[in-house]
Design a protein around this nucleic acid. Structure first.
Lengths: 293, 293
DNA sequence: CAAAATACCTGACTAAAGTCAGGCGATGGA
DNA sequence: TCCATCGCCTGACTTTAGTCAGGTATTTTG
């Protein structure tokens, strides 16, 4: 890896924690411990389930409970049973709590403003654009691609979104039942596999693999959520699937695609796939590709 | 101020502390309190004076002392009298301390690497460039411009660098004694003023003002350190000096500049100065400007 | 040369952050 | 219907972080 790049990341991290992080910590407590301030902020005007709070802030359940008690004592928060499940509870801001939350919100705005204020209009635009870039690319870097079961609720949701998109983009429309020879069972090891790409735990893409014969694997169901496109998710999933195929003993990977999916075609070419003759009778396929592993 | 810009800054700050800051804090402690880890890292292979450590880490003197005692007990640090002044001391890493420091260093690299690793080469370049931009512009935003005494050591250093640069850039060379009618005394209120731009406490620019008559102020000695150019420091100093001039009752501000200082000329025009006829006998001046306040 | 200032140290604190074991009342699958 | 599990709570901690009031040499200054 490039040492200059690493040095830049380290220097960035120092600079940002010093200039942004430090302010956050000192200004945004309003005379209250940082933990409580963060909790109050995280509950937000809509309230939040205790479990969600615990995972978002990384708190021990006892610790959270005690802080909630303290915020309740200050009259800022009320904790109520709400959901169907009477074990789980939900923290809500009281009137006073909402006012406090608004104060934090205003302080955050002020803080952001204090960064923009000394800059010229050109510099502001540039800073904001660079921040958006960093944020987007850091998110991309935190996306994970992993093998998962194909029959979970989340996998089904990915596939549903995938099919919806095909129906919208194919000139001829799309009916999942028609020409869709592969069933979910095909994507279970050792005759196949399924990968999901996740950003902060939420699925943002999927891809599937099945063995056609002992030496040939087919890639199917490649999909990336619109919000995560342009971040290299597809090629990461593709490489993951290829590695899995290789581990199954496959020597060749093949796939088909529709003429309207131009990005997909250029992705496959970029990743070393060559166009070949029709190898299946998928009515929606217009192009067929393969790659030797 | 633009709400979208503020929202972007807030979102950036959240994203970065979550993705970079959080890792920093949890990974970089190696089973030791964060304070000690930071201290060890800050001492570095070359060692550091205690005063410097205290100010860089923002520590209470007692707190620092206690942490040093703890690091000494762990055999990582030795504290020695070194300088001429026997009151001040210097913390040095022992052999074991250097090994520990190297481990932190490697961890930091690894952390940075883990951000780069999932990205494509194009995305990496883009991330690194955006980070450099953000860092640079955040630094620019933290530059302060304030009125200060013109006879301090730091003011003198700014002026010395300014004169050195003039000597280098003027085709005809530069002799500070020649045609330099203004003395330091002219830059003391209420007949004049002196501003210094600072980045993290270190001077990165200066500018001076003196009243020629009760309604006219002259701006002189405008200088920005090469490292801080292109960040809008000069125009901030200029505006500050104009505001001071106005507070002194001046209705007009004027200044002169040499033909080789092209950026200065375009700055003055951009800030609303119009070129006028020669108003002084400065042998180094080729252009004269003025602006009504 | 005495007095003030400097640079660091020590002891005695407080508050915040974080951990652990156990407990209680739902809940849901065998 | 039983019982393991879940979601939360309580009490009893430990560790970190941070502050404050002196105290001791050493240096600087009037």
């Amino acid at each position: 890896m490039d040492n200059l790049q690493i040095a830049q990341i380290r220097s960035f991290s120092r600079a940002v924690t010093r200039r942004v992080g430090a302010l956050d910590e000192s200004y945004l407590r309003r005379g209250r411990p940082l933990g409580e301030a963060r909790l109050l902020f995280e509950i937000g005007p809509e309230g939040a389930g205790l479990g969600a709070l615990r995972s978002r802030l990384g708190l021990d359940s006892g610790y959270l409970s005690r802080m909630l008690r303290s915020l309740e004592a200050q009259g800022l928060v009320s904790v109520e049973k709400l959901d169907g499940d009477a074990r789980s509870r939900r923290a809500m801001l009281t009137e006073k709590g909402r006012a406090e939350h608004a104060a934090y919100d205003a302080l955050s705005d002020e803080l952001a403003n204090s960064i923009l204020e000394p800059l010229s209009a050109v510099a502001r635009d540039r800073l904001v654009a660079a921040m958006a870039d960093v944020e987007r690319l850091l998110a991309a870097a935190s996306i994970t691609v992993g093998e998962e079961a194909a029959d979970t609720e989340e996998a089904r949701q990915c596939l549903a979104q995938y099919f919806d998109e095909l129906a919208e983009r194919f000139e001829e429309g799309f009916d999942p039942g028609k020409g869709n020879t592969a069933t979910g069972d095909d994507f279970i090891p050792p005759q196949g596999s399924f990968v999901i790409a996740r950003l902060d735990g939420n699925p943002v893409g999927c891809g599937a693999l099945r063995l056609i014969d002992s030496e040939t694997a087919e890639i199917k169901r490649m999909w990336v959520a619109p919000s995560a496109r342009g971040l290299g998710v597809a090629s990461r999933m593709l490489r993951k699937l290829e590695a899995i195929a290789a581990s199954f003993g496959a020597k060749t990977v093949c796939l088909d695609t529709n003429r309207s999916l131009k990005e997909a075609q250029s992705l496959y070419r970029r990743e070393g796939y060559a166009e070949i003759a029709r190898f299946n009778d998928n009515p929606y396929a217009d192009h067929w590709f393969s790659k030797r592993l």
